[in-house]
């Protein structure tokens, strides 16, 4: 897919909470330390953090790099599966906090881990149609895993924000995008339920791998590109193995995915995961680099984007904290503190 008007990423920003729970802590409590763990450690939001606060900091960082006045944004869209309110938009809180109100569209998107890139597709459409000059798409989550479940090792918190604008103002312009979606119930959470259900191994082949391979292959065919044409590729990262394997299946090598693969250090930040990986790639990107972004959301679908970095990036990268600085800013906690921070204690 390509919009009529050429667009690109004008600004981007990341956020990762400070706290880290090593995966071996989950293993220690629930399996007696037996068996392997899918990541090294995951980020844990502090007691005063939620999807709105995470989105606000990522959004402020995107505005700093974009050199865009918040009053010029015509959309602030937040993709998440952990919005603070069941009814009341996160988007209005973020828009108000960054100074984008009132001449702006604001709302929330829901598509499991690809809610953020769904908002990004829409922002591309809004700017690409000429309806707006600037639109912000955010992926942010404070994901929850049931105690003792396989998901508890990886469910993490983080956010990434992107300002889509005209190509001539962009740090990376869009070559094209593609969305591939089917009704595949690999993972879901019913209303009023705190923890999601998932299909175990079913989340792999018919869900994650099928949807990402289809979206990326279709995009590459549309753009007549090969994996070797890309300096970097970022895939949704529920763990470390899945993105490594899907990269191999599609013909990308380890070097291409290394910079954007953060899951081992921060876990699965859900709607932020792939978008956060892209911020780490953009932090060190050079003009001319071509970058692939491919999300995955359970339910299920994948959005794929091809971006080419412009000359403007070099003077903007340092205008906000680097993603690696957020990753390095860590305070390790144990399972007991994690239980408190994630509100898993029932007071009777």
């Amino acid at each position: 897919m390509k919009p009529d008007r050429q667009v690109g990423i004008v600004g981007y920003g990341a956020y990762v909470p400070r706290y880290r729970l090593p995966a071996v802590e989950v293993s220690r409590v629930w399996t007696g330390g037996q068996g392997g763990v899918p990541i090294e450690e995951k980020s844990v939001p502090g007691l005063d953090e939620d999807t709105a606060t995470i989105a606000i900091e990522a959004a402020r960082n995107a505005l700093r790099r974009g050199l865009v006045d918040a009053q010029d944004l015509r959309a602030v869209w937040v993709g998440s599966e952990s919005h603070p309110y069941a009814v009341k938009p996160t988007g209005t809180i973020v828009a108000e906090a960054i100074g984008a109100t009132p001449a702006v569209s604001a709302g929330d998107w829901q598509f499991a881990c690809k809610a953020g890139t769904e908002a990004l597709q829409a922002a591309i459409g809004l700017v690409g149609s000429g309806m707006a000059d600037y639109a912000m798409a955010i992926g942010a989550d404070t994901a929850q895993g049931r105690p003792g479940d396989a998901l508890e090792y990886t469910t993490a918190a983080g956010g990434a924000a992107y300002i889509v604008g005209p190509r001539e103002r962009s740090l990376a312009y869009l070559e094209g995008s593609y969305s591939f979606v089917t009704d595949t119930p690999d993972f879901f959470r019913r209303p009023y339920r705190h923890y999601p259900e998932h299909g175990g191994r079913f989340t792999g082949e018919p869900a994650y791998f099928k949807h990402i391979t289809h979206s990326v292959q279709a995009l590459l065919e549309e753009l007549r590109l090969e994996p070797a044409d890309f300096a970097a590729a970022v895939f949704h990262q529920p763990n470390v193995k899945f993105p490594q394997r899907v990269a191999q299946m599609l013909g990308f090598n380890k070097e291409q995915i290394k910079t954007g693969l953060l899951a081992g250090q921060v876990g699965n930040t859900y709607a932020a995961a792939a978008m956060l990986g892209l911020t780490a790639v953009l932090d060190v990107a050079r003009p001319g680099d071509r970058i692939l972004l491919a999300s995955f959301g359970s339910g299920a679908g994948s959005d794929a984007f091809s971006l080419v970095v412009t000359e403007a990036i070099t003077e903007r990268q340092a205008l906000a904290p680097f993603t690696r600085a957020y990753v390095a800013r860590r305070k390790q906690i144990d399972y007991g503190v994690y239980v408190r921070y994630r509100h898993k204690l029932e007071m009777h």
């Binding site: 502090g46 005063d48 953090e49 939620d50 709105a52 606060t53 900091e57 309110y85 906090a97």
Partner: peptide, 19 residues
């Protein structure tokens, strides 16, 4: 930074503000 200051109970508002 903008953070959660408190919650007004399970049914109430989330109060955000500066820290």
């Amino acid at each position: 930074v903008t953070r959660k200051l408190k919650e007004e109970g399970e049914n109430g508002m989330v109060v955000y503000g500066y820290k």
